[in-house]
Amino acid sequence: MQFYKKVDHEGLFIEDIKIELIPIDEEGNSDPQYIAEPVPPGLFWPKWNGTEWVEGGEASEPQPVIPSEVEVLRAQVRASDDRADFLEECLVEMAQLVYK
């Protein structure tokens, strides 16, 4: 048994597969979907170009997270509560200074 990399018709890596022999087509050629050469580390989307592994894709750009209206309102309520707590603490400190 040997490990092979299975690729699609465009050469993009699909999965690791463990088989004894590479399947052979009607003409006696080995199936080009099975690659014995290991994928070098660091490739985001490995692609077999016929002779070597190359980068077959690009990392998707992170999409900005747009908060829902409910999330925005919750954040505003939390901020308002925090501000009220801060002002209350300030009043307590001021009262302690005045009424020493």
Score class of each variant (00 low, 15 high):
Asp16Ser: 11
Leu91Ala: 12
Ser80Arg: 13
Ala84Glu: 08
Ile19Pro: 06
Pro67Glu: 11
Val54Met: 12
Arg74Gly: 01
Ala84Val: 14
Val72Gly: 06
Asp31Cys: 11
Glu71His: 03
Phe13Met: 02
Asn29Tyr: 14
Pro64Tyr: 03
Val7Leu: 01
Leu73Gln: 15
Glu52Trp: 09
Glu27Pro: 00
Leu12Met: 07
Val92Asn: 01
Leu43Thr: 03
Glu37Ala: 06
Val7Glu: 01
Lys6Tyr: 01
Ile14Cys: 10
Pro41Leu: 14
Glu69Gly: 10
Cys90Leu: 14
Glu27Gln: 08
Val65Pro: 00
Lys6Phe: 01
Val77Cys: 00
Ala95His: 07
Met94Trp: 03
Thr51Ile: 14
Leu43Tyr: 05
Leu97Tyr: 03
Ile22Ser: 02
Ala79Tyr: 09
Pro62Gly: 01
Asp82Gln: 14
Glu37Arg: 00
Val39Pro: 06
Gly42Ala: 11
Glu27Cys: 03
Tyr99Arg: 15
Leu43Cys: 04
Asp85Pro: 00
Lys47Val: 05
Leu87Asp: 09
Ile14Lys: 04
Val65Gln: 04
Leu43Ser: 05
Phe3Asp: 08
Cys90Thr: 04
Phe13Tyr: 06
His9Ala: 11
Ala79Leu: 11
Met1Leu: 10
Glu89Val: 00
Val92Arg: 05
Lys6Leu: 04
Glu88Ala: 10
Glu37Thr: 00
Asn29Arg: 12
Pro38Asp: 09
Leu12Asn: 13
Ile22Thr: 08
Val92Gln: 04
Leu73Gly: 01
Glu69Phe: 13
Glu71Phe: 07
Ala79Glu: 13
Pro40Phe: 02
Ser60Cys: 08
Val92Cys: 01
Val39Gln: 09
Pro23Tyr: 12
Glu27Met: 08
Pro40Trp: 03
Asp31Thr: 11
Leu12Val: 14
Gln33Ala: 11
Phe86Leu: 09
Gly57Asn: 12
Pro46His: 09
Ala79Met: 09
Glu15Ser: 07
Gly57Val: 13
Lys5Trp: 03
Ala59Ile: 13
Ala79Asp: 10
Asn49Pro: 01
Ile19Tyr: 02
Glu93Met: 11
Val98Asn: 12
Glu37Gln: 05
Ile35Gln: 03
Val92Trp: 01
Leu21Gly: 09
Asp85Asn: 11
Glu93Phe: 05
Glu37Leu: 04
Ser60Arg: 11
Glu20Tyr: 02
Ser30Leu: 13
Ile17Ser: 14
Ser68Arg: 09
Val72Lys: 15
Trp53Ser: 06
Pro67Tyr: 10
Gly42Met: 07
Glu88Arg: 09
Gln76His: 12
Ile22Lys: 03
Leu91Val: 10
Val92Gly: 01
Val98Trp: 15
Pro41Thr: 15
Leu43Arg: 03
Tyr34Trp: 06
Val77Pro: 00
Val39Leu: 10
Glu55Thr: 07
Glu61Gly: 00
Glu88His: 04
Asn49His: 02
Glu93Asp: 12
Lys47Gln: 08
Glu37Gly: 00
Tyr34Thr: 05
Trp53Val: 07
Lys47Arg: 12
Arg74Glu: 15
Val92His: 02
Ala75Tyr: 06
Leu91Arg: 14
Leu73Tyr: 07
Ala84Trp: 00
Val77Ala: 02
Val65Phe: 08
Met1Thr: 04
Lys47Gly: 02
Glu37Asp: 04
Glu71Ala: 11
Trp45Gly: 10
Glu52Ile: 10
